[in-house]
Computed example of a mutant assay.
Amino acid sequence: MKVVVCRNLGEDAVGILKAKKELDLVVWPGPDDKAADRRWLLENVEGAVGVIVMLTDKVDDELLDAAGPSLRVVSTMSVGYEHVDLKAVGRRGLKLGYTPDVLTEAVADLCIMLALMASRVNNGVSIVQAGTWRDYSWKPFGFCGPQLSTTSPSQTRTAGFLGFGRIAQATLRRLVPFGITHVLYSGNPGSPPDSERDAALQTQHNLRELRKVDLKELARESDVLFVLAPGGPSTYHVVNEEFLREMKETAVLVNASRGTLVDSEALAEALGRERPRPFGAGLDVVEGEPNVGAEHPLVKEPRCVIVPHVASATFETRTAMATRAAYNLVGALFDEPMPSSVDLSSFQ
């Protein structure tokens, strides 16, 4: 049973696959830091019963036709599956595995890091790295930014979430010790708020308020705003010029979901104004990545901190993602439970 693996998954995941003696593993032989060559993948996937792919591997009719009728499962080592043509996979009756949940805590950690960096160290880091710190004399309000935590019991602090799923709620847990008092969130306009869940979270975290709002109120009231919604056409550039103009001058924007949710040009312009709205931004993702060079307007903007899509980049999380991808494939091929599969019934 031929299985194609598009990257080195590490000893733990490979061990899961090798334990199934029926499997004939064909692993991308290139360097770990290089995506599997498309031509190699198309040539080697022929006759495979399963394939493990990454976000960089497009799963479309071309790939599925190259595999042929033997293919039974596609397993992606990612929580997102925008690179997979769900219709093409579904109409062939294939199973699709993905890796949610296991990266929740790591992404939430990074959200807090980006919020702190965007509010406190954005332009300061660039000055140190440029070797020009010595050119700046100390002054009472030099290098100042908005404080994430509250400073007195009477003070309020509002966290906003564009998308309020697992990662957003894990981020909220980390924010509570900072003294967050109010939580606002926006999600799918067609979905009603989960009143029972919201009431439970408000009580659990001793919040004065937790409620679903529209985008305009979310932008206007948030002191720190986390973009954690799925990608796709419905959320394309949801954070645009109009949204940014509503934000506070002291607010911080964090995006750890998909780059397409934030209009990069609009954000760069907003941050570069004499009175910027928001104060700063922390980004794990940027539209068009990884083609984000030194001349990109957000890279050049001192109020913006960018890291190269590393929210899940901990040894623990990547190992868990790789093993989940392996177990998904094994489950589909050997009639065992798939830990995480995408419901494709509407495409079949």
Rank of each mutant, 00 (worst) to 15 (best):
G30S: 11
S312L: 06
L184T: 02
V89L: 04
V121P: 00
L333F: 05
R120T: 07
G145H: 08
L261D: 02
R174D: 06
V107F: 04
D135M: 06
S222M: 06
L94V: 03
R92G: 01
R39V: 13
T181N: 07
K248F: 07
V286E: 10
A36V: 15
D61S: 14
T181H: 07
A19Y: 09
V5S: 04
Q155K: 08
L329Y: 01
A311T: 06
T314Q: 02
S234R: 15
W138S: 13
D12Y: 03
R220D: 11
K18N: 13
S154W: 15
A66D: 00
A313F: 14
E241S: 15
A130S: 15
K95Q: 12
D37F: 02
G30A: 12
M1K: 11
N291E: 14
L42F: 06
A270N: 09
E274Q: 14
S137D: 12
T56V: 05
Q129H: 13
P100C: 11
W138G: 00
E22S: 12
R303L: 04
D101F: 04
A294N: 08
A256Q: 05
H309G: 12
H83M: 07
L96M: 04
K58H: 08
D343H: 10
E242S: 14
V286Y: 00
L116Q: 06
Y98S: 04
C111W: 02
M1S: 11
P193G: 05
P192T: 07
R303Y: 07
S341Q: 15
H237R: 14
G190F: 08
S264L: 04
V59Q: 09
M321I: 03
G179S: 04
G231Y: 05
K216V: 14
A170H: 09
A13L: 03
H182K: 13
G131P: 05
T181F: 10
R92Y: 03
C144Q: 13
V262Y: 02
R211T: 12
N240M: 08
V292L: 10
R91D: 12
A332G: 12
T156Y: 11
P290V: 08
V125F: 13
K20F: 09
C6N: 01
P308R: 07
E242I: 01
R303S: 11
I16S: 00
R318W: 08
C144V: 13
C6E: 01
V125K: 09
A19Q: 14
